[in-house]
Design a protein around this nucleic acid. Structure first.
Lengths: 218, 218
DNA sequence: TTAATAATGTAACCTTTGTTACTGAGTCCT
DNA sequence: AGGACTCAGTAACAAAGGTTACATTATTAA
């Protein structure tokens, strides 16, 4: 047994021990592969074939929707103990990805071959619950994004976006350019700069080159 | 065995016979109740407790998202052979509905108690596939709505809406007021009237009081 | 150090969408 | 018929957000 195998079993127990029974944890350790992904790395693009299902150990992955013209929209972040429903989604039907996934922070995860998904669904109740729970969470998150796109104005969407960034990255300094934020919200750089400036004038944030310090977004 | 029981088993076989094994069909017939719902009837409102899971036999159900201020947005239609993932969604966690469901046409369906859901998920492979397939379909539909709200202008959204209405209701005459269409698209009556008038001038539709005749939306 | 590049600030303007207000036409009720 | 009501057409205006253009500042490469 290699060093990474031992590491993987330990990480699995730490992050999924409450969730999965011993037998399942062992199966995952057998067929899964441990991966480390640096922040900013594109893990999956639109049209990529889905090879495996990610089980997050640490870090966070940003999941985006993208249309034909390359317009983007942030959907949600995956965090430790979570997986990607879209991946499961892709396994049933179009094997091609309909989303883009980018590491938001340095991230570690275990990749499980998609073939195991159905097998485990029949075999392990805990896996079944995990998969359902995951679909449930993702569907709700997509609905919340839909709510914000349909019902909210850009100023509120921007504040919500900044708050979520702070939560996911566990820091009050956001390391992004205005352009990057504009992409995530499917807006334009000028609009985001304008709104950020307003937030600064209200004392909620501090603007700097390449980063934004969050003071208080209430 | 009552008349409705016999009817129900027949309807089940017609609509779900390919999908479910004999044993499951019988279980559904035992615990399910047959319902007929007239067009326009509100089957579920935001905050309602979820009592059962609907299996559609005929007709169609319109599923809407609604925010705190009562603003609405059409999500998708449920049709025969389909069920509501949102219902399943609600069974796990918040038991309260986060969506509104209105019969789009006269609709018949079988209601299954939510308790059976998990039981059958363990017991029947076909049920498991059905539930996964359903989540899959719904997640994709919500993503498509998100695409259209985020990336499309109102004129395109309106055309797509009219096309979908034609498909679901299987008729080229849409029986709605401009106000009702505006609610579904989360827009305003004046805007919809304006865009419809343009479509009429381009020869794509004919406007009448309380109904719209679709000529050609290509 | 200087030039090139990237990020931001800001003004002017345009488009889309939403709002308000009013009109008239059709429908329903008595 | 007459009045009330609903639906649709339209104009005038407002607001939000997107676009273009250009200036300024910070950073990096040469």
């Amino acid at each position: 047994m290699s060093y990474t195998d031992i590491l993987m079993i330990q990480e699995l127990k730490d992050n999924y021990g409450q969730l999965f029974e011993e037998d399942l944890l062992n199966e995952i350790a057998q067929v899964g592969t441990f991966k480390e992904v640096p922040a900013g790395f594109t893990m999956m693009a639109i049209g990529d074939y889905v090879r495996g299902m990610p089980l997050l150990i640490s870090g966070a992955i940003k999941v985006l929707r993208e249309d034909n013209e390359g317009d983007e929209l942030l959907l949600y972040y995956l965090e430790s103990g979570e997986t990607c429903s879209m991946t499961m989604n892709c396994c049933m039907g179009h094997a091609k990805s309909e989303i883009k996934a980018v590491a938001e922070r340095d991230t570690t995860l275990i990749m499980v071959p998609v073939q195991k998904m159905e097998e485990w669904t029949a075999k392990y109740k805990s896996w079944r619950n995990f998969v359902f729970q995951s679909y449930h969470t993702r569907l709700n998150e997509v609905l919340h994004i839909l709510d914000s796109v349909a019902f909210d104005k850009m100023d509120k969407r921007l504040v919500d976006y900044l708050k979520e960034k702070v939560r996911v990255n566990k820091t009050n300094t956001i390391h992004n350019t205005h352009q990057e934020i504009a992409y995530d919200l499917h807006s334009s750089r000028v609009v985001i700069s304008r709104l950020l400036k307003k937030l600064e004038q209200m004392g909620h944030i501090e603007l700097h080159r390449n980063h934004i310090k969050i003071i208080n977004l209430a």
